[in-house]
Amino acid sequence: MNEQPVIFTRGLTRYFGGKPAVEGLNLEVPRGSVFAFLGRNGSGKTTTIRLLLGLVQPTRGEGAILGYNIRHLPTEARARIGYLTEEHQLYGWMSVKECGDFQSRFYPRWNEKIFRGVVGHFHLSMTSRVKDLSRGERAGLSLGLTLAPEPELLMMDDPTQGLDPVACRSLVESMIYLTRRSDRTIFFSSHQLADVERVADYIAILDRSVLRVCCPLETFRQSVQQVKLRFPGPPPPLPEIPGLLQAFRSEGELRLTCVHYHGATEQALRALAPVEMEMVPISLEDAFISYLGERGEKSFILSETEAQP
């Protein structure tokens, strides 16, 4: 068993015209993981994927994919990586079968059974013309073409974008199916947290070009927590709370979302002397939003002076 990570970067940085697209990225993707790469639009996810595939050269920093330096990625490395993008090149006049035949010539290790299996899973007919396919069907064809060479590493840039729920589910099912081989690694970017919750065992979160999270999904969920504090009257003003992400204030209640809730956080909260203090579990989506959203205190109650016209 190879313990070396499938993807490894140190200080990986890329500037475009004096602006950082990716800054000081330290990423480690374990072999056999389903790794979700998250972040808001424009946070640098696509640039990172293109850097890892050697399609863009880093401004500085290092990176390796399947043990190869990303600055000089040899052809044999590329043959072991499947790359699925939205703008997958397909010829409209070809049939599904012709696409498979055409693509297979480029790969010595082409598994026709996998191609037909994936294409069948998306209910495609081998004789359909590409130009007549729906968006979801095209995604299924692209996926079949990407998976048939049996890549060790599957890189997908927002694969469910623009797909209807049925096509999305088929894609996620294919990802689960791929995990039958424990040495296969899937690295995908997405905004669909429901899919991430289903399939990912690791996540990384990129925030304005900087990597903020890179850990097992479960670790992330456990480290972002919500605490509800009840007070007999209006809650006191908040002092500095270690690890505070967001605070919501309402009548007699403070609801705080904290990261790495630990002794110091608890002490600071107890010092506010609440009558009741309760940990509330939080969904993945809420955890994600409080992590990337605006920091600080929010209030949904207008103060008396504000409420007056």
């Binding site: 099912e173 689960i176 199916y177 995990t179 289903r198 399939v199 990912a200 065992d201 479960e218």
Partner: peptide, 17 residues
């Protein structure tokens, strides 16, 4: 583990957990 993972469409590691 495998059957439930594919039935629920969930990562098998989650079922194993």
């Amino acid at each position: 583990v495998r059957a439930l993972a594919e039935d629920l469409v969930v990562n098998p590691n989650t079922i194993a957990h």
